[in-house]
Design a protein around this nucleic acid. Sequence first.
DNA 1: ATTTCTCATAACCATCGAGTTATGAATGTG
DNA 2: CACATTCATAACTCGATGGTTATGAGAAAT
Lengths: 107, 107
Amino acid sequence: MTSSPDLLFRALADPTRRALFERLCLEGEQTVGALTAEAGISQPAVSKHLGVLKQAGLVHDRHEGRQTHYSAQQRALAPLVDWTGRMTRFWEARFDDLEDLLKRMDQ
Amino acid sequence: MTSSPDLLFRALADPTRRALFERLCLEGEQTVGALTAEAGISQPAVSKHLGVLKQAGLVHDRHEGRQTHYSAQQRALAPLVDWTGRMTRFWEARFDDLEDLLKRMDQ
DNA sequence: ATTTCTCATAACCATCGAGTTATGAATGTG
DNA sequence: CACATTCATAACTCGATGGTTATGAGAAAT
């Protein structure tokens, strides 16, 4: 069983793949050809990356004629945001404890 | 030049490594021995993972006698939060645009 | 001083993953 | 129908990476 944040982290760990996702986020829907034109790698490589992103739920594909349009699914980032939240919340809690301690020491 | 989010994503992409970081976040400072006891892998493997986390700025090590104490540096997650923010902000902006469009179409 | 304990490093191995080229499937075009 | 275009998949290569065991360095204990 591969957990949800695991898929996301793994999918976004590769810089090329992250660049593809960023383009889809910032510039909106793109065809494979358009993405390949700027990616600096071969078309099959781009397709494979898009496949990984799709499997992670980060992109959605729409077939139109002989071309495939990919678009970002930013909602899929939610588990990532949750995860960082859980990790940093503990830091804040601990920080609050420290503040309490200092306050109590002050009196 | 490896950018900051790149190091973070790569460091957190491995489930074993992420588990180590989570433990340090939730349970606080731990020695290598304590971490190894529950990690299910050899001590050298744990040390190597901790080295990667340290290089990414995610953990800090403190030497005390013959043991090394590791602790989480949650602040290091900031670039990750920023990145997800930049990606999702565009979604919200685009969503707002859509809402505006619908509103205008309504009139 | 010798031994024991804790951790890091070295050397090695196997697997994974990102890239390539070749090719096929599906759709449009002459 | 024949040809071109667009994308996905197959087969392969090769470097990166996560794991192992062996060993060394440094600190504590006897």
